[in-house]
Design a protein around this nucleic acid. Structure first.
Lengths: 213, 213
DNA sequence: GATCGTAAGCGTACAACGTACTCTTACCGG
DNA sequence: CCGGTAAGAGTACGTTGTACGCTTACGATC
């Protein structure tokens, strides 16, 4: 009986993502998204509660691009690496979404599905559920932090060029690391840190044990 | 000759932090901080370039509370744990600052001093500078991510109560972990994840080696 | 095919924000 | 005592999110 809706949530999310990619996080305003959709500002509110909900839609669109199905081949660290890398790639395709993920990640179904798969892989090696909780949260923490450092950090490496300019006497170690950091690519750095965590997970209950998985 | 300044940067930072603690991140406005200082809104601009600079001051105040001197006793993983925990405690005292640290962390002298100390401790065990870069960045990533999950997460644990309400058939592993997560305290979780990373660092070049360091 | 109820779509309006501009005013060296 | 300098504040403007109410298009009904 009533007038039908002319937009889907997916269209709204896509428009918002287009604005975000084009104008950056600060450019994501209700007015800009409405204009992108070719409609009046207030019409947007027929589809979205408020700005926060709009942001949620964008985050979910980006995170929804992550394939949640378990990878097939390889050992468990390899498969977890694939899962983690999938998120990094999806977010890396839209760097401006990073600040938003921080606030909206917690209620994301996509992350939940992702977590389920990772938890399943972890179950193969970590039998104790409490240790599995710690491992999963550790992976998620690393993932969140690394993505942020990568996209909002000063430069790649732990300061790289900026580090090169500071007092060598007060910061001898950082000075040396600044030089070394130039040799380490972004991918290497990300994978390397993840490998450390995975090595720790495979090490068993103690702080540093043997058992190669 | 001119009229002297009546405020120090430290006073401004303290006032802004007070506002932040009282009203949350959204309440941190130029007007609110000026009022907190008992002065007109525009007078603030005599001391601070813009809102971003004000945020930087607050972040630095919080992060400046972190003791950057190396801990004395204990093995290297213990000392790094102390260093990492210091940051967590400092930030935990003012949770509302978490969203700000994300944007301002990169240019923080306090974090630089902290990094220098941690890099020094790492140098005791990790001889290769490139591997040390990866280790340091890994620690920082974990730290940043874990603090965020702790303060902006859904609830403690990887979903905990919210997880309990979802479809057991679709999320069997998360379901089980949700139950287990209730047994894991926040501190345990944080320390546990960190321990995994440290174990990985002490494991040597390969993905999972022996060498207890 | 005319009619009408419902919700879509939009224009206006307001409070609150960051901040540019300008004026007044308090201080201190001479 | 007095004048120059910068501190401090008032006003104002553009932009944001969004509440409110009007208009308008659709499709089920007679």
């Amino acid at each position: 009986m009533p007038r039908p809706r002319s937009l889907t949530s997916a269209q709204i999310a896509a428009a918002a993502l287009a604005v975000l990619d084009r104008d950056g996080p600060a450019g994501l305003t209700m007015r800009a998204v409405a204009q992108q959709l070719g409609m009046g500002t207030m019409s947007l509110y027929r589809y979205v509660d408020d700005r926060e909900a709009l942001e949620g839609l964008v985050v979910e669109l980006v995170l929804g691009a992550v394939d949640p199905t378990p990878p097939q081949g390889g050992d468990w660290p390899g498969r977890i690496t694939v899962m983690v890398e999938r998120v990094r790639v999806a977010v890396g395709a839209h760097p401006a979404v990073v600040p938003l993920t921080m606030t909206h990640r917690h209620r994301s179904p996509a992350i939940l599905r992702w977590s389920e798969t990772v938890a399943g892989i972890l179950a193969e090696t970590v039998t104790d559920p409490e240790r599995r909780v710690v491992a999963l949260r550790g992976l998620l923490s690393y993932l969140v932090g690394a993505i942020q450092l990568e996209h909002l950090g000063p430069l790649s490496g732990p300061g790289t060029a900026a580090i090169a300019g500071l007092d060598p006497a007060a910061f001898p170690h950082m000075r040396q690391l600044g030089a070394a950091a130039r040799q380490v690519g972004t991918d290497e750095e990300f994978r390397g840190g993840l490998a450390l965590l995975l090595a720790g997970i495979s090490g068993g209950p103690g702080p540093a044990r043997t058992r190669t998985a």
